[in-house]
């Protein structure tokens, strides 16, 4: 055997979400604290491949990235008969909790980007005790819309082309061209209407303004990191959100946009490494003090 084989392994787990079994694809690597990674709207878990393959992080974390139903290698449920896909806050929350339950994860860290960052806030509001720490990338309680999502799913516009072209501007100009293209490639491959359906959660159903004040970072630490070039979830959106939450950590990431983990993995690593290190340190302290971790 001469080929380079990457360390992450992909498998399927059958997950009961709201009473229906879903066949969910996930990849994982490493051992230690479970770190569950949530992809952006209209994409899939491939966005996390650099983090999954990270030699250092995987020594202390069990890094897991799963494809949401309808995304990547996780098919729509067998009950689907062609109706329009629409993600809701309740459904998204149930999916993450059911996935963690199916894998038997004990107090995982959850890190989500974009819609994944938004839902992390909802996990912090309603289910903080289930998690060791929560990390929201490109996260805010609300963002002002900047285009009409009906363009994403109509028969006279190529879905793959328009989804990628719209989000291409959310990538910072300094990133490697190969990473930019790879980030856009997953947007070109989404199922018809899936990106639009995810944005139903983002634009319509998942407005958390007025609710984030309930977050208690004493129960579960919350880290918010946003790229300076993200004009969808702007640094100001994240700062405004954090201002309503006592104790939330905010970092504005230079030379990064809306897809930090995939658009410029090396630059993102500089920002996420100290966060993971702090979580590790807190977990070690808790263990020494006899707390359940």
């Amino acid at each position: 055997m001469t080929g380079h084989i990457e360390p992450m392994v992909g498998r399927y787990v059958h997950v009961d979400i709201d009473g229906e079994m879903h066949r969910i694809y996930f990849e994982e690597n490493g051992a230690g604290i479970p770190l569950v990674c949530l992809h952006t709207a209209g994409s899939d878990g491939r966005q996390w491949r650099h983090l999954l393959g990270d030699e250092e992080f995987s020594k202390r974390f069990r890094i897991i990235a799963f494809d949401m139903p309808w995304h990547g290698k996780s098919n729509p449920p067998s009950s689907w008969t062609g109706e329009e896909y629409r993600l809701t806050t309740a459904r998204y929350t149930a999916t993450i909790r059911a996935f963690c339950h199916a894998l038997g994860l004990q107090k995982p860290v959850v890190m989500g980007c974009s819609i994944g960052g938004r839902i992390v806030l909802n996990l912090a509001i309603d289910h903080a005790r289930e998690f060791r720490a929560l990390i929201g990338l490109e996260a805010a309680d609300f963002q002002a819309p900047w285009y009409d999502t009906s363009w994403l799913h109509r028969p006279d516009v190529h879905g793959g082309e328009i989804c990628a072209a719209l989000v291409s501007g959310l990538i910072a100009p300094q990133g490697p061209e190969v990473s930019r293209r790879e980030t856009l490639w997953s947007y070109m491959q989404g199922g018809p209407g899936v990106f639009k359906g995810d944005l139903h959660f983002y634009r319509v159903d998942g407005d958390l303004r007025g609710r984030v004040g309930k977050i208690d970072t004493g129960v579960c630490p919350l880290y918010l990191l946003t790229g300076e070039y993200d004009f969808s979830c702007t640094p100001e959106d994240t700062r405004r959100t954090a201002a309503a939450i006592g104790g939330a950590s905010v970092t504005i990431m230079e030379q990064l946009g809306h897809f930090p983990m995939s658009e410029n993995p090396g630059q993102f690593r500089r920002y996420i490494a100290p966060v993971l290190s702090e979580i590790l340190k807190q977990s070690t302290t808790s263990t020494k003090q006899g707390a359940h971790v």
Binding site: A144, W146, D156, V157, E161, S168, G169, A172, F231
Partner: peptide, 27 residues
């Protein structure tokens, strides 16, 4: 200031008319 639609959001640019040809060929 790095993207055509970032500029419209920033109100430094205006997009008007029948957007179909623009959106089908956005990139």
């Amino acid at each position: 200031w790095h993207d055509l639609l970032a500029l419209t959001k920033l109100e430094q640019a205006a997009l008007e008319g029948d957007l179909h040809p623009f959106m089908t060929h956005l990139q």
